[in-house]
Design a protein around this nucleic acid. Structure first.
Length: 455
DNA sequence: TGAAATGTTGGGGCG
DNA sequence: ACGCCCCAACATTTC
């Protein structure tokens, strides 16, 4: 019996995995493959934090597959074709990716292999609805979230598939995961990461979150609280599917919190379809006027931002949380992004690149769509003049300064009253920098630059 | 999923 | 009792 080759990509799970399910139900032996591809043209090479996650997630998947996951490195299309031959497979299946370079790669691989007489089948494992499914009345893709969400909310969501009960796995030569050197060595900047990658941990995170989902509407905005789901990296690597999350949340009982959370899954789908329909989203502003925007170049300011040494407490806390844990609370992501783009006038792509490298949940669609959203040049974006004041944001969402003190120990002794603006304290804390930008001046400079653009 | 500037209103202190 | 001013509190406009 000829085996079926399952090419794993961003679907590192056994349950609700339609490609794997199809292969198993064929009743034939299955070869499971993952390819580390750092060379396909146009591909965004995984960042450091993503690699850390990928290492552990592959280890978990391999364990679930009784150590029979086949690992190969190189040009993905070439390797897949080679393994089809080598394993004697006449059928190849995978779950679809939606990044433009992946779509192009997969499309040509499918047509090549089909021409060779190999059956190729692809499935949807990553989304509630395909990016081409939801259209406006005019038949075009949505560019505004609210009507998109209304249309999406009205759709039925498919029920998730169970994990295969029995796997008949065929072996093939595999590289050793440790040889891929996906983990940082010296220095080991990931030692503070508090994450457990893998399918099991993803479901544990979901069930933890279900206890709190009622409070999500309020709690998700408070960075010191554990009010968010923390599912994003699991979702990115497909250790859990949005269908599974959707079903769990909708059957868990209705509340305002669950509706707000489902809407976040909606934003994820919105971003994915934006990138799918706008392949240049990671590089070019959707709003063409911004192509002429005069961005400031300042390696010094950018470095202060990345290191969490801007002298603005909520920003520094966020940037240090990112560096230490590979993740940043979403409210704080908006604040740090706003400071970089607006007050410092630095190009959103620089911030995007930093997030791409340091976030464990780095996702091309979400990352680029949301940076453009903050910059005001994206689809349905925040207007450029909507500028966050990090002092007010801090006072509003971290009123006691607990979040700030957790990540910026220099500020431990600063009284609550000054915790978000220590430069105004009678005794400014030693060892903590003065703000690298005057917030009022930064705001004015940003507004002036925006005015110049409109002219 | 803003913030600041500007405008309006109404209660209270006070001559 | 009345007008005047001050200034919160809230609303609206502007960036």
């Amino acid at each position: 019996m000829k085996p079926v080759l399952v090419w794993f990509r961003q679907d590192l799970r056994l349950s609700d995995n339609p490609a794997l399910d199809f292969a198993v139900k064929s009743g034939r032996p299955v070869i499971c493959l993952f390819v580390l591809d750092d060379q396909s043209p146009g591909a965004w090479k995984w960042g450091g934090a993503s690699r850390w996650w990928l290492h552990h997630s592959l280890a978990a998947l391999d364990k679930a597959l009784d150590g029979r996951l086949v690992l190969r490195r190189g040009d993905a299309a070439k390797i897949v074709r080679a393994l089809v031959k080598e394993g004697g497979a006449d059928t190849l299946v995978w779950n679809r990716c939606y990044e433009p370079f992946a779509v192009a790669r997969d499309k040509s691989l499918k047509s090549d292999l089909s021409a060779d007489g190999v059956t190729v089948q692809t499935f949807n494992a990553a989304l509630l609805h395909e990016p081409w499914e939801l259209k406006t009345g005019g038949g075009t893709p949505f560019r505004v979230f609210t009507p998109f969400w209304k249309a999406m909310r009205a759709m039925d969501v498919a029920k998730p598939l169970a994990a295969p009960r029995k796997l008949d796995l065929q072996k093939a030569k595999s590289e050793a995961l440790k040889d891929w050197k996906l983990l940082p060595a010296k220095p080991d900047w990931a030692k503070g990461f508090d994450w457990t990658p893998g399918e099991k941990a993803a479901h544990a995170a979901l069930y933890d979150f279900l206890d709190d989902v009622k409070e999500y509407g309020r709690a998700r905005d408070l960075p010191d609280r554990d009010g968010t789901s923390r599912l994003s990296p699991h979702l990115h690597w497909g250790e859990i599917s949005p269908r599974q999350i959707w079903q769990a949340v909708t059957t868990h009982g209705h509340s305002g919190g669950s509706e707000t959370f489902l809407k976040e899954l909606g934003w994820r789908e919105f971003c994915t379809q934006l990138l799918f329909h706008n392949p240049t989203l990671p590089e070019l502003p959707l709003d063409k006027r911004f192509e002429k925007f005069q961005w400031r170049k300042s390696a010094k300011d950018f470095e202060a931002w990345t290191k969490g040494k801007t002298g603005i407490p909520i920003v520094d806390a966020g940037m240090r949380q990112l560096w230490q844990t590979g993740w940043m609370h979403n409210r704080v992501r908006m604040i740090v992004a706003s400071l970089l783009i607006k007050h410092l006038g630095i190009h959103w792509r620089e911030g995007q690149a930093w997030f791409w490298d340091t976030l464990v949940d780095a996702d091309l669609a979400n990352n680029s769509a949301n940076w453009q959203w903050v910059a005001g040049c994206g689809a349905d974006a925040a207007p450029f003049f909507r500028i966050f004041n990090p002092v007010l944001q801090g006072e509003k969402f971290d009123p006691r300064g607990d979040y700030v003190r957790r990540f910026v120990p220099e500020l431990k002794a600063v009284p609550d009253k000054f915790i978000h603006k220590p430069w105004t304290a009678p005794q400014p804390p030693a060892g903590y920098p003065a703000p690298i930008v005057d917030l009022a001046q930064g705001r004015e400079r940003a507004l002036a630059a925006f005015q110049a653009l409109k002219r």
